[in-house]
Design a protein around this nucleic acid. Structure first.
Lengths: 119, 119, 119, 119
DNA sequence: GTGGTCTAGACCACT
DNA sequence: GTGGTCTAGACCACC
């Protein structure tokens, strides 16, 4: 995985893990790799890996069981909520940007249709 | 203008100026306020204001004439290009994100329509 | 290092670093000194040092990894490209100037030979 | 004439006039345009035009006769000297730059020959 | 420890 | 008056 230099690495990795969750590549309740393994997987500092689980735990996405490891939440509702939150953020950002660029809602829809036809 | 604490002030101001450019509130070839004036307008340090114009000049959006001031490029083509580039980047980002979140093009259009009706 | 008063210090330092790069005194992918260290090395303000790396990053010569430091690009191709671009610029400038001064290509070669013999 | 934004306009114009002198487009002893006319010719501020003649006078290239105007020196020797000085500066700059880029004298000659053949 | 940003204030060259 | 550069020193996020 390549990192964008402008956004914090740990946030990029969290976003990556969330995507996997949402796309069901990681199943609810599944065990996540250890921080050491995570550090190896993403080629980052173990401190950074630890921070990632800490942040995700604070968000309720995963929880750490002492001596067992870190597990994804088994609440499918929470996963759905995450998905919705992510989508809402993406959409609001999109509409706000396009509006300042002078696009109407109609124009946005049109341009998405165009893209679809280009496939 | 209020600043978001997470994004650098100078980038927020650049984005603001670009918006004005794209929305034709600033005309091609027009003189921009002096760095000192810009600093007063946005309540920032003159140094930060200078940085803004330097950055924009590097992007080709404006050019400075020694002792005279800073001027927006008079190339309407370039302005149009900037607008198109901005739009393209926004759209591609949107589609890529929404696709990984499991949305179809149809779904995206639908959700935009919903937003429109909520206004 | 002594600075020429007419050219900005930060540009002189950038030129110095580029020279080292081109002459292979700095290897591709190598870590550059921290901004604070660079400031000490060249006896300039840390701010000026930071500006140097920022400028070089904009040129694609180096890239910074957050919290780790600044690294020279590991692309030997890019370094070669930089070298070629620098050489091309220098040569074209030379030929154009000498031509307007009334020199022929033969005359240019002759004068370089003379200089060589003066060593 | 287009101006380079990084070098002072008055120096660029002086260089331009010197070229004309060296290329014999301006003859020794010839009357130069008035500062007002010069300002119009180059589309610059009259202050800048005045500065140009002042600087050139300091270099001995021209002299102002009260009520008559500004005249180029009629010393062909001086013009030759100017030509030589310009050439020397250009050559030294070239050799120093190419040397730091790792070129030998032989290499420089070769590359000039190549350029000649490309014509 | 690393770079990124910002403020404050100074000096300079150019128009 | 205009931008360009530089110093000094502060705070922050990141690794």
């Amino acid at each position: 995985m390549e990192f964008n230099t402008s956004e914090p690495i740990y946030l990029q990795i969290i976003a990556d893990i969330k995507k996997k969750l949402v796309l069901d590549e990681i199943k609810p309740g599944e065990k996540l790799p250890s921080t050491r393994q995570l550090a190896l997987d993403y080629q980052v500092n173990p401190n950074t890996a630890a921070r990632i689980y800490k942040e995700m735990e604070a968000e309720g996405i995963c929880l750490t069981k002492r001596g067992l490891g870190t597990f994804v939440t088994d609440s499918t509702e929470l996963i759905q909520t995450i998905r919705d939150e992510m989508a809402t953020r993406v959409i609001e950002h999109f509409i706000s940007e396009m509006t300042t660029l002078g696009y109407s809602y109609k124009g946005m829809i049109e341009i998405i249709r165009e893209r679809e036809n280009q496939l």
